[in-house]
Nucleic acid binder design. Structure first.
Lengths: 191, 191, 191, 191
DNA sequence: TACTAACCGAGACGGTACGTCACGTCTTGAA
DNA sequence: TTCAAGACGTGACGTACCGTCTCGGTTAGTA
């Protein structure tokens, strides 16, 4: 069924169709093979409608990302037992996601898009972990582990954790058990 | 002057012209605007010659990277005084590089290309630091700082450092003095 | 000056520019060296615009031929005196055309193109003589010459005349005076 | 089995392999899609060997034609009963050949090639009829039919017959019974 | 109630680059 | 010197998208 025509006001239906189509296509073909024409056809929208409201391909992706259409499974860092157990638990959940080639592909797509779009880049950390969630959990753990002290710069530590995972994703190294163990050990200072 | 013809064997001159042109173009226009045709024209080589020997644009870039044509200034981590001072020194050198928009652009290009090519990805760490150099320096510092203990997984720690810088580069946050201070503090455990 | 944009309807200006460019290039370089890219450049048109509306190189030539852009000098068979004189007159005019290497080249081009395109082929006879004109003239001459009788199949005879000229053109034999004499003699049955 | 290498004399085996491959390929894909590379591969010969001994693609085809490799079934014009019957018989044989799409394709190929190569062009008549055979038969028929008189220019008449068939082949009109009847009627002057 | 103006789907347009094919030239090493 | 092999620079192929531009057809807000 074709979208309704609204007259001289922006069509919300068209906007959502574009974002939805973008999300589907990133999942299916990845950012590299994502095209404006492809989005327009999939969304049943004219190309001009996209060019009217978005400045570039990456801007469409950015909005889809912000709307939460690209990665629905936000992994909250749990706060149950010890910081060691909680980090293990979160990283294992993340590793589970990355085993799904499609979702791993979406992550790679977002990384690629981030190099081209500042807004996407600023959401990069949240792709792997809701920033506040991770920072809060680490903050709460201060004093609990040798490397988590009062003077430890927590947000830099969060960057390091996310960055380490990022490097593994990009280098196509699996986030296996020993990698997780090492990461937690390096963060906490306990073996 | 045209390149010499070698007969039915691969022309080394053509190969080097391609890699050299690729390196120049990545510096000038970045990976996104790098085209096979552009490389061919700049190298004075036929497009088919590129397609004959390389499977994709990213494969050419990978080889240029391996040959050391893309980033000549490999920042060795110094080993002079304390680990704190050495990390500071190295990171400040890196920050200096990143202030040059052209070299920062090359880094971004390599990151983009890494999402498309495993070989480039596996060299990603070396783009920021010669891996052995960083790992060796950290290993030598074991016992010297609270967070550098015998049981600290050094290569994971190296990943975290490189990853943290990567996240900053991609998020377009500057690698300024306080960022460097925090990073060194998080690594060593001293303020 | 760029061509006007018509919106989502075919641009007549682009169509005519293509046909005009095709006609010029066939005259200049011949059908063998006619390329779609060459037409596009000469016409100031995108290659895709040609592929959108024509299925092949020969289809473009066919349309140019139909539009009368390729051979403007249509030789009407005169109807003045005797059939013998009129055929002589027409054939001598034709021979005159064929002495011009450029126009002879266009004829050869059309013949080549005819082997690849049925529409061109069906206009082949008109290239040498407007079919109706020749047939009408021969019909009017019935009874006037021994070989032009009531039961003579006039259109087959027209094919034979055109075919004989065609064979000479292709065999690169000149259409000289004695050839014309012989042809007229064979057609009419008078010497 | 690879061809033997002869040392510094021309390899007759290579020559024949080239002509044979050319003949096969003209039959299979037609002159338009015939390529030097294709011939070389099919013949198991180096491209250079072809370029060394032939000046162009059409020259190879010309030689294959002269060697009789392209059209083996030479239709001799019979000399049995009346000229009417004999022409009918010959033309019906020709029509039979043209019904085979492959052999019709070879004819079209030769016509195309003839526009590019004088040697092929000079053999064009023989493709449809062994010239001497047709001319001899017509000469022998002088006096036998109203339009076959002593002063009829026989070789021009042969050109007209061959030309008429050529026009039909190129226009993709079938050489059916009524066409044959008309042609014979026009030649002889009898119905 | 008509008119105006912005938005919409559609899709043609001039471009750029893609990856492939074949051209004709060349060099190699073996016969 | 010829040959098979095949790399090379060149140029055209036909395709995919780019971003821009009408075109009619809606429809909300103004006159």
């Amino acid at each position: 069924m074709p979208l309704p025509r609204n007259g001289p006001v922006r069509s919300e239906a068209a906007r959502q169709a574009v974002l939805r189509a973008t999300s589907e296509l990133v999942n299916e073909v990845g950012y590299d093979h994502l095209t404006i024409e492809g989005i327009a056809v999939r969304a049943g929208v004219a190309k001009q409608t996209i060019y009217r409201w978005w400045s570039s391909r990456s801007a469409v992706v950015a909005e889809a990302l912000v709307e939460g259409l690209l990665l629905s499974d936000h992994l909250v860092v749990p706060h149950t037992g010890s910081i060691t157990a909680d980090l293990h638990s979160w990283l294992q959940g993340l590793a589970g996601l990355l085993e799904d080639p499609q979702r791993a592909g979406v992550m790679t797509s977002i990384i690629t898009a981030a190099t081209q779009n500042a807004e996407i880049a600023s959401h990069l950390r949240e792709v792997l972990a809701p920033t506040e969630s991770l920072i809060e959990r680490l903050t709460a753990a201060v004093g609990e582990a040798p490397n988590l002290r009062l003077d430890t710069p927590i947000d830099t530590l969060a960057d390091m954790i996310v960055g380490a995972v990022l490097v593994r994703v990009m280098s196509r190294h699996p986030l296996d058990q020993s990698a997780i163990d090492d990461l937690v050990a390096a963060v906490t200072g306990t073996k």
